[in-house]
Design a protein around this nucleic acid. Structure first.
Ligand SMILES: [Mn+2]
Ligand SMILES: [Mn+2]
Ligand SMILES: [Mn+2]
Ligand SMILES: [Mn+2]
Lengths: 228, 228
DNA sequence: CCATTTTTTTAGGCGTGTCTAATTTTTTTA
DNA sequence: TAAAAAAATTAGACACGCCTAAAAAAATGG
């Protein structure tokens, strides 16, 4: 009798973080990702990235052309999406079940996403009722890796006088989320864009039934909204 | 103004596993733990242990006397208990909330116990309703590190003719727990000890309202019971 | 109590994932 | 298009957590 050996290639947390970061940069810039962009994303030095991408290339998780950057292979992309799925399911669990604030969960999910158990994630997902979006409005990939793409625009690109609804935050930083808490902006909040300052792109907005506030272009560009 | 820098010493998973293993061996043998015992516990070579205990000694987590073994300091013991607390709370969550089998959760908890977040564990504990025992009957230390000590005996040392109730399993191995599932033995199951074979210490027991079964001394010694 | 066995330590090495310094390649721009 | 600037790579190093081989220390036992 012939036993078929199953190779379960287990990636380290570092390797998984690279795959996630590369996918994110690919989606943002739709081109191959320069090693320098990864160094910047992780706050590490460029040679460290060169070493790692060589290793990931050997594992067929990405294609690396010297001095030209990297692109995920199908295998690498599939794994990257699986990790994002884990991250977002954990974030949803932390906010929905354990009542963490949305600004607290990203760092924790960075750890939890590296726990190796497909079954755990599937059970969590079922326990949560198969949520489609995480606490920041980001879509949760399904088990097959399908991601619903939000047709949102960033508030920074919205038109003055328009009414919008916040459906996502394109930046998980604790600081931004804390600031949004202060402004009483959360998922579902209605915004009226009253004016845009040409000089710096800052906006004056009316937040729900509250007063008006001025927000910087940086904040405006991380608020994902739909017309309302 | 003088700021007091707070050093949050973050231990690696390996370091945490050493602390846990040392505490377990200390409790079992009530003496200092030889490096060889740790090598055996982890299935690694003795020189690896020597290296690690030197490092843990530098961090004041244990006392190491060359060729004489190690003992946890108060600091080390406190950390070890905190890790056991995490392990058992995660196991309880997995069984109670996500409906894993009790035989599936140990390995997963081995990963989850190394997620660094006091707040996460406290929230999980509250969500679970402050459980006092994990799915294998092991006591869950409270936030202060207090562990209720079970006054159980092992079935192997029980007296023939006695009625007992299973309150714990002193071995988390998947294989044993699977075997107990097959025997329909779980926490709370009533047992009647019918006879003991002098030759090998094996027992014949009546399991609840089911038939009688013969179990080996090895199994008998991992069943924690109280008189019933 | 000395010789043999067992346990532990020392010495040196390796893969991972990071670093700095120096060099090479690519891009920009004068 | 050639020089300068920017980006990337190579070279060499280091902490971590493990290894094997050899030496030393402790325990055993005749
Ligand atoms: Mn991560
Ligand atoms: Mn998120
Ligand atoms: Mn366990
Ligand atoms: Mn347990």
């Amino acid at each position: 009798m012939k036993l078929s050996l199953i190779f379960v290639e287990v990636l380290s947390a570092a390797e998984e973080n690279y795959l996630k970061a590369i996918l994110k940069l690919e989606l943002e810039h739709k081109v191959s990702v320069p090693t320098g962009a990864l160094a910047h994303a992780f706050g590490i030095q460029a040679p460290s990235v060169t070493d790692m991408v060589k290793k990931l290339a050997l594992k067929k998780l990405l294609k690396y052309e010297k001095s030209k950057g990297v692109r995920l292979t199908d295998k690498g992309k599939k794994l990257a999406i699986a990790i994002i799925r884990k991250h977002r399911i954990w974030e949803t669990f932390l906010v929905q079940t354990l009542e963490f604030g949305w600004e607290e969960v990203h760092e924790l999910a960075e750890q939890l996403e590296h726990v190796h158990s497909e079954k755990l994630i599937d059970k969590l997902e079922a326990f949560l009722g198969f949520p489609r979006f995480d606490p920041h409005g980001d879509p949760i990939p399904d088990k097959k890796g399908t991601i619903v793409s939000a047709k949102a625009i960033v508030l920074g690109a919205a038109k003055v006088g328009g009414n919008y609804k916040v459906i996502g935050i394109s930046d998980d930083s604790t600081e931004l989320l804390h600031y949004l808490n202060k402004l009483h902006v959360k998922l579902g909040t209605k915004l009226l864009l009253q004016s845009r300052e040409a000089f710096d792109g800052s906006l004056v907005i009316k937040i729900g039934s509250r007063g008006t506030e001025s927000i910087s272009a940086i904040v405006a560009n991380s608020l994902l909204v739909v017309e309302d």
